[in-house]
């Protein structure tokens, strides 16, 4: 590696043009990736009736949020849903991930197949399938719990997150040998105790990353939410989607800016935890890319 590094240093003057081209392209693409986000952040400081037309700078849109219970409710529903969905996905995914890593067998292939199927199914298909299914469970079978807005959202948002948490936990444990667990069992720890004191701590960085990722997934989810949500528990993205038809106001940008800051904090935490547990940038990229 160091030899390669040195070689590159020596050769640099000769192939400078291609390096420059790569740098320019890379920076251009980064600008492209951030352009609409920058526009939204700038728009949130727009004082004007509509998001599209710039009037002048001010904090009015942020202050206006205080007088908009509909927006506050939508954000609160999203946060609640995100938290519960992340809990459900993390619990189910962690157990499944541990089972896949520590109790391998033919069933793992079937289970991985199911997870793959869930993660490649377009969201719109999940959405249109869940809508009649919730109606069937809630109304035809009379299970009232499935008429509850938050329950429906949590179920819809948990599907993809379960697959991500399972992949993450499995990947983390497969990379570490089972010797510690065997030692714990040899020292007469009960299986439950080994699980709590050894296996779970080993898997913890992945569990934490999975939880945070599930939370942001849920906060983001628009398509499934738009189909399964019931009036009275409209999550934030669905609120934005309906505002799209009636005209976007700067308040939408203001909330988006706040949410962006919160997401960045969450992601920063995940990156920090993964880095502490010894992941390289590529490992983190793989983890955050969802397996």
């Amino acid at each position: 590696m160091s030899v390669g590094e040195a070689q590159r240093q020596v050769r640099r003057p000769r192939k400078a043009w291609s390096d420059v081209a790569f740098n320019v392209w890379g920076i251009l693409v980064m600008v492209f990736l951030f352009a609409p986000i920058a526009v939204i952040i700038v728009s949130s400081f727009n004082v004007g009736r509509l998001l599209v037309s710039w009037d002048h700078f001010g904090f009015d849109s942020f202050l206006a949020l205080l007088a908009k219970p509909a927006i506050q409710d939508a954000v609160w529903i999203s946060v609640q849903t995100g938290f519960i969905a992340a809990l459900v996905a993390t619990a189910l995914g962690t157990l499944a991930g541990i089972a896949m890593a520590r109790h391998p067998g033919k069933w793992v292939w079937w289970f991985m197949g199911l997870l793959l199927l869930v993660s490649v199914t377009p969201e719109i298909v999940d959405a249109v399938s869940l809508l009649p299914w919730m109606v069937f469970l809630g109304q035809d079978l009379g299970m009232a719990v499935f008429n509850d807005g938050i329950v429906r959202l949590v179920i819809g948002h948990s599907l993809f997150s379960i697959t991500v948490v399972s992949y993450l936990v499995r990947a983390r444990l497969v990379g570490q040998e089972a010797q510690l667990e065997e030692a714990s069992a040899d020292l007469y720890a009960t299986p439950t105790r080994t699980f709590r004191k050894v296996t779970l701590p080993l898997a913890m960085p992945a569990v934490f990353a999975g939880f945070m990722l599930s939370f942001t997934f849920s906060l983001d989810n628009t398509v499934i939410a738009a189909f399964v949500s019931v009036s009275g528990s409209t999550p934030w993205p669905v609120y934005v989607l309906s505002a799209l038809r009636s005209g976007l106001r700067p308040e939408i940008a203001a909330v988006s800016t706040i949410m962006l800051v919160l997401t960045l904090i969450a992601l920063g935490l995940v990156a920090l935890v993964l880095k502490r547990s010894g992941d390289s940038a590529a490992d983190i990229a793989r983890t955050m890319g969802g397996g």
Binding site: A35, P36, I40, P237, V240, L248, S256, M259, L260
Partner: peptide
């Protein structure tokens, strides 16, 4: 947020 980026 996917939707917000697209609105951008």
């Amino acid at each position: 947020n996917f939707l917000v980026r697209t609105i951008g």
